[in-house]
Nucleic acid binder design. Structure first.
Length: 113
DNA sequence: CACTTGACAACAA
DNA sequence: CTTGTTGCCAAGT
């Protein structure tokens, strides 16, 4: 098997985000301990098209749906999140801090590898 | 090879 | 709220 690229790691972590929860670019970048938040954004850009990656659960550090514009339709991201019970207002996740799921804190690195 | 852009983060003013 | 700065790294021009 090919060695996991940075992009594949981002996909893997994104798939681990629980239903009804969200994570941030920084949280993923911190968990992977390489690259940067920018790389995560770059990777996620292809994520939704690449396969079954719940990219809608990834938001920026303010809880804003910064990537909604990259979905087939800008409304799709919010719709998907609301479908999971997440309340969105003004393109921002309400109770963001509560819903935030940080792999580095909720998950063991060894468990992921 | 040099420069710019990008679903960013974090802080400062 | 906006604007600016620094760090980060790949891809595009």
């Amino acid at each position: 098997m090919s060695e996991p690229s940075y992009v594949e790691n981002v996909y893997a972590v994104t798939r681990l985000v629980p239903f009804g929860r969200v994570t941030t670019y920084g949280a993923i970048a911190d968990f992977l301990a390489l690259g940067s938040a920018r790389m995560v954004g770059w990777a996620l850009n292809r994520a939704f098209s690449a396969g079954d990656v719940p990219a809608h659960r990834v938001v920026n550090r303010k809880g804003e749906l910064s990537g909604r514009n990259h979905f087939p339709t800008p409304d799709m991201m919010q719709a998907l999140l609301e479908n999971e019970g997440i309340v969105i207002e003004d393109h921002r996740v309400q109770d963001f801090k509560q819903l935030l799921w940080i792999p580095a804190n909720e998950l063991s690195e060894e468990d992921f590898w």
